[in-house]
Amino acid sequence: MRTLFSDVPRASLTAFYWAFILYLLLPLTLMMAMSFKDANFVAFPIGEWTFDWYVKVMQDKQFLEACLYSIMIAAATTFAATTLGVWIAMLIVAEGIRGQVIIFALACLPAVVPGMISAISLRIFISTIDMPTGTAAIILGHTVHAVPFVVVMALTRLRSMPGNLVDAARDLGADSVVAFFRVTLPYLGPALVGGMIFCVLLSIDDFVRTFFLGGYRPTLPMLIFAKVQGGMSPEINAMATLVLVVTAAVGLYAEFLTRRARTR
């Protein structure tokens, strides 16, 4: 069969691909490389290599506190978004519920509303109800954003669940709560872990919502942003490299988990 681009030489297709990969990886590699530079400024040549910046970052109280704060917000967001997301997914697959399409569309809305708009509207909302900016407001903003991702992941898994598994549990003496915790939840298992990790990453990564809803305590992205404004230094590169490595590892693990959930 002739493909659409069959007259484009194969070699040039491959070349474009590698150009793209280069474009993707070069900045990341440079950033990582600079974090090992033994000097106070970011520029070539690297010259001497050192781990000093990492040692410095790991001893930086501000950085560690921001990490902790981000992790705390991510944990709260994940808990809230997972609970809500699974709840909504269960509602959508439940029998005898009208307007499932509308429920689904509404639940997914936060994923497509631009972050900027969502952030501003939430900011206006919280000041209307006299809620202070800060931790609670951030968690609220992050949760709304994360719910759709949990809903989609949980829904995909729930739809593949044989309907009579719950019937079987009920038949053997489980009330609906026991059936949910002993049968439905374990069945959701891997998809849920994947969804939760996704929540964590979304929350840790979020800048716009945090910027509008946050108080004086900086989360990790806000801290890095503040530091960048004060001038680039290899210390920032070291921080960013750490964040990159950890989030990439977690993200890959989540992908692995959801993949396994899909193939089982």
């Binding site: 044989p162 019937d167 079987a168 549990a169 038949d171 049968v183 298992g189």
Partner: peptide, 30 residues
């Protein structure tokens, strides 16, 4: 009376075994 309060049990057409539980756990469920 709801199904969990009736002393009858069903063998489903596609068995509906709990996929995450061992054979023994499945039988022990009830």
């Amino acid at each position: 009376v709801p199904p969990n309060k009736r002393n009858v049990n069903i063998v489903f057409q596609d068995y509906a075994l709990f996929p995450h539980m061992s054979v023994a756990k499945n039988i022990a469920f009830g």
